Amino acid sequence: MFERLRSVVISDGRSAAAVFAALGWVLLLCAGQVLAGGERLVVVPWLALGPLAASLVVGWRGTAVTALASVLAVAALSGWLSGDLGTGTGEVRVAGSAALAVFAVVGAHVRVRREERIRSVAQVAAVAQTAIQHPVPARVGDLALASRYVSASADALVGGDLFDVVSTADGVRAIVGDVRGKGLPAVHTAAAVLSAFRHTAPLPGTGLDEVARRVEAAIQPRLGPEDFVTAVLCAVHPDGRLDVVLCGHPAPLLLAPGRDPVAVGRHPGPPLGLGVDPRVESTALGAGQRLLLFTDGLVEARDASGRFFDLQAQASSLVQAGAELDDGLERLLAAVRRHVGGRLDDDLAVLLLERAPAGPPVHRAGAGGAAAARA
């Protein structure tokens, strides 16, 4: 009987535990009242707590089971102990218990409907956020890639941090950026930056500095007086030449086995939205070398004593012998979480790329985004 009740009334183990706990509460109170004796029913108000508590965690059917048990218990105690079930006092007592029971059942139904709407909205939001920042492919041109996005908000997959990778006729171009501010305005601005980059970066004859100018021009109308976007743009050419443009953003790190990380770029310039003045700086990305692009949520992560995360010391682990790109990023993020004590205060985006022998061509012209994670 109880198995059938469980299969019909509840859908999972936690709900079953809640229903049986509420029924146990009703039985416990009834036993206590019987043992105490007397005509005064002191447990009647407490019996209503069973269905009311159940309504917070289970559906209306499970709540109805506990509500029915509560009302029957009040009726049984009124008839057996106090002997006033057929009087006005007993009828009022039972009616009051029934009213609370109905309230609990209706409350459970309303709660479940609201949760279903919230889940539906959350699913739509998740799809929309994935459309804004879709996953970076494992390979674009002759570059192997890995990426991670960690949102500081438990209610969001993405925020104001962004990154993207685009294949062009002259190599591969990437952007990593950080929008000033948080919430939906920051997400909207990040989406605008990504859209402008995806449309501009593949254009033939467009230098990396011109890409930065066009991205700024595209997002300028939506920015407020104090809004801006820090960004780093880079281009890896087939011959290994690496071009970098810094727009108020931390310089990426060039990583090579057996060497200390080297910052690429010395001229940050103004951020996008504040009159960008891009300057292209060039170096070489050798085969087997890696480039780490990141937002300031990585270098500004602090521990309990206020010390910043030491990226220079940790970045060397990203080029350990035989280390896969994804494994390296996982170790890096694990180190960040240990440093801050488990939860980040700011969004964090990292993009790790490695120049490797050319593989199968990637036909998608624009592929970028975030593999989202909860601090």
Rank of each mutant, 00 (worst) to 15 (best):
R290Q: 07
L208S: 06
E324V: 14
A156E: 07
P261V: 07
A125K: 08
R331M: 04
F197V: 08
A104P: 04
D296P: 03
A349Y: 01
G90N: 02
E115I: 09
R14V: 08
V215F: 09
L29T: 07
R93Y: 00
V57F: 15
G79Y: 01
L208G: 05
V106H: 10
L35N: 03
L298Y: 00
V280N: 02
D12C: 12
L208P: 00
T230C: 06
R337H: 14
D161S: 05
A128C: 08
A321T: 14
G269P: 03
L23G: 00
R222H: 08
A349D: 00
A192D: 11
S151Q: 05
R355M: 04
A231L: 04
L344T: 15
R355D: 04
V244N: 06
V211Y: 03
A18V: 15
V264Y: 03
I132H: 02
H188L: 14
R180Q: 15
R114V: 09
G258N: 00
L28M: 13
D346S: 05
G62V: 13
V264M: 07
G183L: 01
A196W: 05
C247A: 15
L157F: 10
G322R: 11
R355L: 01
R279N: 04
S97R: 06
S7R: 15
L81D: 00
W80V: 15
A131W: 00
L325I: 09
G88M: 02
V176A: 14
G177S: 12
E281P: 02
E226N: 14
R4M: 07
A122G: 01
A218T: 13
V42N: 05
L318G: 06
H199R: 14
D239G: 11
L353D: 09
A98H: 03
A367H: 14
V193A: 10
D326F: 15
L298E: 00
R307H: 14
A356W: 10
F103Q: 08
G88V: 07
D243L: 09
E281C: 05
R338K: 06
V150F: 02
A146M: 09
G62N: 12
Y149M: 05
A349F: 01
P257G: 02
L29I: 15
F20Q: 05
R337P: 05
C234R: 01
G141N: 10
R266L: 11
